[in-house]
């Protein structure tokens, strides 16, 4: 059953050093506030998993929280590279980081398999591609019915999934709307989950019987953090701060400008600063 906590308590209770953590969001609903809390609490040796690691993983890696990243596309969308990830991977600063690389189709299938309680995922993929040479976890099976050769990847193994959503009701049921990515699969795949929400409401009122709702009994902890997805966005609340994504390219390019920004905007602040971005869209 979901418990309602302050963000600092939710992270403290659910994210441990060395955990396999997925902070999902396909450019939408990225849990930035929760990521900043993990950085403030100085978690170490995390194995970070995400299809599209962007700025929040760049920040976690640059602050020395991670030792491994499993991913399928690691960049600043529409802008360029993740400089802190590059520096860690190519130069070992602030520490070495190991990578486990997949395609999007493989990662999406691996989440789906994990949510379904399966040990691996099977799909038509990686044909003529070189990733299987450098990622030994990519294997092949022969279909027992048609003899077609298909790719397999192990199901995602998660200690904790962290996501941001529009709202939760007082029973802890969570509603997601818009581009929903693999967040539902990530929560169902994980041993524990932390959900930050724009608001906690008396009635969830899902807009359709087919809305994406995570029942309260599938969620471990909920924290109300208005604006908690900034600079990504929350459909129906606020827009993506594209200007910040562009600005990050400069901030993260050098170690000292990065560290100064993190000190000023993360280490000396709390989740309440996100509220400034939380204006509900008209």
């Amino acid at each position: 059953m979901a418990t309602f906590l302050k963000l600092s308590e939710a992270v403290e209770a659910n994210v441990k050093d060395g955990d396999a953590v997925a902070m999902e969001g396909f450019t939408h609903l990225i849990p930035f506030a929760a990521g900043h809390e993990i950085i403030r609490q100085k978690r170490k040796r995390l194995s970070l998993i995400r299809m599209t690691p962007d700025l929040i993983y760049d920040q976690l890696i640059g602050m020395g929280c991670a030792e491994r990243m499993t991913f399928s596309w690691g960049g600043n969308p529409g802008v360029g590279s993740l400089h802190r990830f590059r520096d860690a991977y190519q130069n070992g600063w602030p520490n070495k980081i190991e990578i486990v690389e997949h395609s999007h189709a493989a990662m999406a299938n691996a989440y789906d398999a994990a949510a379904a309680g399966l040990p691996f995922a099977v799909f038509r993929g990686y044909r003529g591609a070189e990733l299987p040479r450098v990622n030994p976890s990519i294997k092949e099976v022969t279909c027992p019915y048609t003899s077609e050769k298909l790719a397999t990847v192990p199901a995602v193994k998660l200690d904790v999934a962290i996501i941001h959503a529009q709202k939760a009701d007082r029973k802890g049921n969570v509603l997601l709307e818009g581009i929903v990515g693999v967040q539902k699969e990530a929560v169902l795949a994980a041993k524990r989950s932390v959900v930050t929400v724009e608001e906690i409401v008396d009635e969830l009122n899902p807009p359709s019987p087919n809305s994406v709702v995570l029942p309260g009994w599938t969620v471990k902890a909920i924290a109300e953090v208005p604006g908690g997805a900034h600079p990504s966005y929350t459909h129906g609340y606020y827009k993506r701060d594209n200007a910040f994504y562009k600005a990050w390219d400069e901030i993260a390019r050098e170690r000292d400008t990065f560290l100064a920004w993190m000190e000023e905007n993360v280490m000396r602040k709390g989740p309440e600063v996100f509220a400034a971005h939380a204006k509900k869209a008209a």
Binding site: F71, S103, H104, A105, R124, G125, Y126, R127
Partner: peptide, 17 residues
């Protein structure tokens, strides 16, 4: 690598599907 790029994303399966 001399330069680590973002990676394949959807491309490996887009290319064949």
């Amino acid at each position: 690598p001399n330069v680590r790029l973002p990676g394949g994303g959807g491309a490996p399966e887009i290319a064949t599907s």
